[in-house]
Write a protein that binds this DNA or RNA. Structure first.
Lengths: 211, 211
DNA sequence: ATATTTTTATGAACGTGTTCAATTAATTCA
DNA sequence: TGAATTAATTGAACACGTTCATAAAAATAT
């Protein structure tokens, strides 16, 4: 008794391509709606209506509203990836590190809505099976580039030798903190919104330099 | 024509004290429910039922579910304030700075649910009238203590003289970034969860030290 | 007492994300 | 041409946060 029967009896499964096409169409429609009305301002019912399917069907294509949003941002991330690639062109590892951090911050500060949607909307985080959203996206891909720059900086004795992973994570945390605070507490009288990212990088590089 | 008439005609206003008492009762009841079921897991209807009033009335006492939560945490914050006060006992400004940062991080990492509730649940941020929640609470009160320690460290030439407000904010951002990342991306293989805060502080102090 | 007036309290109603039994569609076997 | 079977799709239903017209309550004025 073969587990998979070659010729099945009932209605055939929708082809992979068909499903992908429909998914793509929903994403396209939803992108426009979200861009206009914001995440909270657009309901799944509206997305469904605009797409021409039922709200229920959306849940066969996406895990939920948040998951739909992830797919929407997925190619918006390519822009961030581009910026990071540009920054990676810098040969000097320490200057590259600075350029990477700068690009990362600049991107998120220029797109606070993306940032909020991705980092600040908490749904049940504890889905054990699937990996955390941010990790799979281009966002933490920055960490790899940072780690490389850190590693090379250590080799060139531009940074004190040490646990390169930890140091990389410290850089990411520092940048994250700047961006997070600037975006989520915009009405606070931050001393220098534009310079904070650069100052953070400078401070961290200074603090991690060899004596 | 006096604006406030001494003896009014209709039903008398509920006394300030009565309203405060009811509010306090709701907070007490809701604290238990939230502690058990979590923020998402408890509905306003349930809170109302457990309190013995209607759901609608809750909205005369609190601005909404989030606002109710704020009141609940308000005295939970006193614990953080205590820790910060303890840390402030340290005389050496640089060691005090380190102790403050450490206490701040330790508190939030020990209470990730508080952190999430306060920093990660975004509702309409753009309420022009009322100040941002975090700013009014004890949370950013830490910034004042940090600023004082930074200022004194600069005077004692333990930190390079400079814009003390900016430097204080960099410290806060660095700490915030560490806590934020550890809490929101717990499944990421962080190299050293426990040491990251201390390392961040060390790095920042090092980077901001006089040459 | 009854009417008036002012405040408080209620509960139905709205739109939300999400689920799931029931329906419809599309195929193969008899 | 019918069953039979399997998958896709729907739409009613649920609990949610929140609002608001309406009802109840509590006082004074007649």
């Amino acid at each position: 008794m073969p587990a998979t029967q070659k010729t099945s009896r009932g209605r055939p499964r929708k082809s992979e391509a068909e499903e992908a096409a429909l998914r793509a169409r929903v994403i396209e429609v939803a992108r426009d709606l979200f861009a206009r009305g914001g995440y909270e301002g657009v309901s799944m019912r509206r997305v469904a209506e605009a797409t021409g399917c039922s709200a229920g069907q959306l849940y066969t294509l996406f895990g939920g509203k948040r998951d739909l949003l992830r797919h929407i941002w997925e190619d918006a991330f390519s822009e961030l990836a581009d910026r990071l690639r540009e920054a990676s062109a810098e040969r000097d590892p320490l200057r590259r590190l600075r350029a990477l951090g700068d690009a990362w911050c600049r991107y998120w500060l220029a797109n606070p809505d993306h940032y909020r949607s991705i980092f600040l909307i908490e749904d049940r985080v504890s889905e054990p099976g699937e990996r955390y959203f941010v990790e799979t996206s281009e966002s933490l891909g920055a960490l790899d580039l940072i780690a490389e720059a850190v590693s090379q900086s250590m080799e060139a004795r531009l940074l004190a030798p040490g646990d390169e992973a930890l140091v990389s994570q410290l850089f990411l945390c520092g940048l994250q903190g700047v961006v997070f605070n600037l975006i989520t507490i915009p009405e606070f009288p931050w001393t220098a919104k534009e310079q904070m990212a650069a100052r953070m990088i400078t401070a961290l590089i200074g603090g991690l330099s060899p004596d």
